[in-house]
Amino acid sequence: MSSFLRVAGLRRIYDSVAAVDDISFEVNKGEFVALLGPSGCGKSTTLKMIAGLEQPDAGSIEIDGSDVLAKTPGKRNLSMVFQSYALFPHLSVKENILFGLKARKVAKKEQKTRLASAVAMVDLEPHLNKKPGQLSGGQSQRVALARSIVSNAPLCLMDEPLSNLDTKLRADMRSEIRSLQKKLGLTVVYVTHDQIEAMSMADRIILLNEGRVEQAAVPESFYNEPGSTFVASFIGHPPMNLVSHNDFQLGVRPEDVAVTDGNGNGVDVIVRECDYQGSETIVTTDYQGSVIRACLPGKRSLQEGSRVQLQWLPEAEHFFDKQSGQRVDRNSVPPFQFTSSNNNTYSGGI
C-alpha cells in the first residue's frame, strides 16, 4: 500500500516552546490512525497543521503525493470533525450538512443525492429541520459526521470527536465511526487522549509525548511490548508497575500480578489501599517505598497495613533502561532479586 498522508519533520514553536518537535509519520490509504497522547503533547496542533489551520515552522506535509503546505485548508481535499462539533447555530441540520457543498457550488441535484445518502448513514432523517440547539450531544456529533461524509473527501481529520459525550454513547459512537470509516474507505487521522478509543478503533496508534513521537505501532504492541517507560506508564488501567533496580526498570502489568498470603515465595509488600471497581479490585501495595498495583478479579478486601506477597510469571516482565527509558531485551538483563523477610529471594515467576 502507498502512503496517502506523509508528515515529515513537522515542527511548531509557540513563544520559544516547541509544541510539535520533529514529528514524522505516514498514513496509508484507508487506514485509521490514532494520534494519542496526554494534553499538551502536540496532537491537536499536528492535526491543525495537516488541515492547514496552522502553519508549521518546519517540515513537510504531503497528501496523496502532493505537497500541501502552500494550499489553503479548503484546497487540501480533506474534511474535519471538531471536538466542539463547530455546527453553525443559526442553520438547520440540513443547511449545516450542505454548507460545504454550497460553498463549493456543487450542483443542486448532486447536493440532494449526497445529502440523502449521508443522512441515511447517520440516521438523521427526523432531525433535518432542527437547529443545532435542539439536538442532543450524540445527534450533534452525527451532524458533524454527516458534514464530513457529504464532502466526499478521502481524508478525514477528527479532533477528539467523542470527548463531549457520556460513556455509553461514546462506546456506541466508537463502533459506529469505525464501521463508517470502513464502509467509505476513509483515511482517518483521529486525535484522542483516551487510550480506549485509540486501542479499540485504530489500525495503528502514534503515541506523542512532549511534541515527539514516542511509539508508532499497532495497538496490541503498545500493551504487549511498550517501547519506553512513558508508553508503559501511559497505556493500561491502571498503568504498568515500574520498579527500579540497578541500571534497569522492571515493568509488570497489574493484571499479571497475583497476591498470596505472606508465607510462600514472592515479593513482600504492605497493603495500602483496595479500590473496588465492580469487575475487579485494584490493590495498591508498598514495596520498599515504591508502589506496586495488582488488579484482581471480583471483590477483594485486604486489611490495610497487612503484609502479603506478590507473584508474577517471568514472561510478564518488561525491562527498560533506567537512563533512556527505552525498552531493553529481557535476556540482556541480570535476574531481578527481591529480598523477602524470611531471607528467601524471589526473582519473578511462581
Binding site: 453553525f88 442553520l91 460553498a103
Partner: peptide
C-alpha cells in the same frame, strides 16, 4: 471553530460573512 470549519469547506470570505 466555526471559521475553521468554513475554511475546511473552502468558503470564500464573502460566503463566510454572508452565511456565518
Amino acid at each position: 471553530n466555526l471559521y475553521h470549519a468554513a475554511a475546511i469547506e473552502n468558503a470564500s470570505k464573502w460566503t463566510v460573512f454572508k452565511r456565518i
